[in-house]
């Protein structure tokens, strides 16, 4: 178990956005979190990464409780994420976006930059190569010099993944990676996520595209109104009464 969530709670005023959620994410697996709009999926991610720190509960990363750590420290532990409402650095180049992702792999500081020290030069070169390699992986190496804001939507999503991989994480939290992608791009994305799994990454993803989820996920957790209502492999979820109810509503006549 690489990531274990125990009794996680998060409330915004009276609204329980995440309500006593337990989840176990197996190392090297693709774990999907689905649920209707407003089910608390993104808040769940924000709790794990401390962007909206949880009210109570534990987030155990390899046995260590990281629930109270701040966002930038969690990133150094090997947890990296993308955002549903893309949060790229729009007035930075595509490559620079990925380089910000590598922030914690390097150490050079202000004086190194001023003097162009040896450490600065080697780090800068290594990270540039690494960044370009990542861009190649997602197919953006030719756009390395463009402003991130000038990329089409689908490519911005790819760039977010590349940027998240910049910190050499062990787990990737992908928040609706296929949103706004056309069917061909989605197919590429599916292959890409499979490839990530083969390379040993653990992937936790939120997605609305059921076809994508059912074909990719080793395990699926379903959230509704902040609570986990079901968990299992694709076939179990598809015929689960409560899941169908959450998505389609209750049958009026029995």
């Amino acid at each position: 178990m690489i990531l274990e969530i125990k009794n996680l709670n998060k409330a915004f005023g009276g609204l329980k956005a995440v309500n006593d959620v337990n989840m176990e994410i197996e190392k090297g697996s693709i774990h999907a979190v689905i649920g209707p709009n407003g089910a608390g999926k993104t808040t769940f991610f924000n709790c794990i990464t401390s962007i909206n720190p949880s009210n109570s509960g534990e987030v155990l990363w390899k046995g260590e409780d990281i629930a109270k750590l701040s966002t930038h420290i969690i990133s150094t532990r090997g947890i990296s994420r993308t955002f549903q409402n893309i949060r790229l650095f729009s007035y930075m180049s595509v490559l620079d976006n990925v380089l910000v992702g590598t922030h914690n792999l390097t150490k050079s500081f202000i004086v190194d930059a001023f003097l162009h020290s040896k450490r600065f030069k080697t780090e800068e070169k290594d990270m540039r190569d690494f960044g370009l390699e990542l861009l190649k992986k997602v197919g953006l190496e030719e756009k390395a010099g463009e402003y991130a804001r000038n990329l089409p939507y689908g490519e911005q999503r790819k760039l977010e993944i590349a940027r998240a991989m910049g910190s050499k994480p062990e787990i990737l939290l992908l928040d609706e990676p296929a949103a706004g992608m056309n069917s061909q791009e989605t197919a590429e994305l599916v292959n890409f996520i499979r490839q990530l799994k083969n390379e040993g990454f653990t992937v936790l993803l939120i997605e609305h595209d059921m076809k994508l989820v059912m074909s990719l996920a080793d395990k699926i957790s379903v959230l509704d109104h902040g609570s986990k209502i079901a968990e299992g492999v694709a076939s179990e979820i598809q015929c689960n009464e409560r899941v169908i109810e959450a998505y389609l509503g209750k049958r009026r006549y029995e």
Partner: peptide
């Protein structure tokens, strides 16, 4: 610059 562009994004990248 990342801070200027998006603080949350920057924090998530470990800044």
């Amino acid at each position: 610059i990342a801070l200027r562009e998006d603080e949350t994004g920057a924090a998530s990248m470990g800044v």
